[in-house]
Amino acid sequence: MTVSRRFLICSIVSLAMTLTTGAASQAESFSNAVDQVQPKVVKLFGAGGLKNLANYGTGVLVSPDGHIATVWNHLLDSDVVTVVLHDGRRFFGKVVGTDSKVDLAIIKIEAEDLPFFNISDTAEVGPGALILAFSNVFKVATGDEPVSVMQGVVSAKTKLAARRGRYRASYDGDVYLVDAVTNNPGAAGGVLTTADGKLLGMLGRELKGTNNTWLNYAIPFSVLEKSINDIVAGRFSRTDDLLAVADETESSGFQSIDFGFLLVPDVVARTPAYVDSVIEETEAAKLGLQPDDLIVFANGELVHSIQTLQGVFQRLLPGDDLQLIVRRNNELVTFTFEVPRKQ
């Protein structure tokens, strides 16, 4: 108790110390912080341009040698991505690695001595903290124009509960939710910083919450740090297969038919994932899957309904394993599929 109380007092003292400066800066312009952050944020131009799919986005420099972190989305689904630095210099970037679990991609451009964020030196804040958000919303900036900056307050730090179209979002870890409208078209890959320009999180793709409202959120860099470091260090690299399925459209993921079986019609909110039929001479038939098998686990995730199973299918990549555990009568049977290449 004494320990915790002392800790509490200490942190309160340190909080109080920062209050005065925080208060003073409230009336002043944020232009100093803005000037610090801007050179480290880049504009991305790539695939897209169709309705509701922006062909522009944002990234953040995480190394002096041109490693750029951004959200892994359809924008990168082209051979090269055009990267425009704050000073208007143009580069062609290549995706060198991705981590679908945290929605992250790293792009590399051939450049040196660039301003960058040290991602192991990031801040953590709680609700009420003033924040700035930097991104190329609505493609307002091109060339050497700086990206847009917004201000707001952290509303909550919580788990992301969101969906993409009919599907749950792949990432469900910690996020900062903010009260500014930060996650507009083109904002994904932008940064959330403190009022004095310290790195907090990466603005995510446009997602709706479970109550059908658009979310304004960022994934903390503490979550992304390991993946970024691994990819930058070359411990994890992209394969072409990864990008082959990096498609934003909702129907592009795998379906049960890709493995040789069909599910019962998804008629209610929580339709149990019963196998309806198994197609002859497919992997499912070879492995011995049968009609009326109830899928209860998929890759370790509890399958509540056909929808959760489809969520798992969405995240599959060619070459992955798909492990299904089904209940047949009163037994559990395990099947392991190899995820095929999509035609």
Partner: peptide, 29 residues
């Protein structure tokens, strides 16, 4: 940790300060 807060949050924190009796910090408030 460096935290900048809205006025409401500040008041809450300052309210805590009173509870903990760190009254000297209140001189400027």
């Amino acid at each position: 940790m460096r935290v900048c807060c809205t006025p409401q949050i500040r008041s809450k924190i300052l309210g805590c300060l009173i509870v903990f009796g760190v009254s000297t910090l209140l001189a400027a408030k």
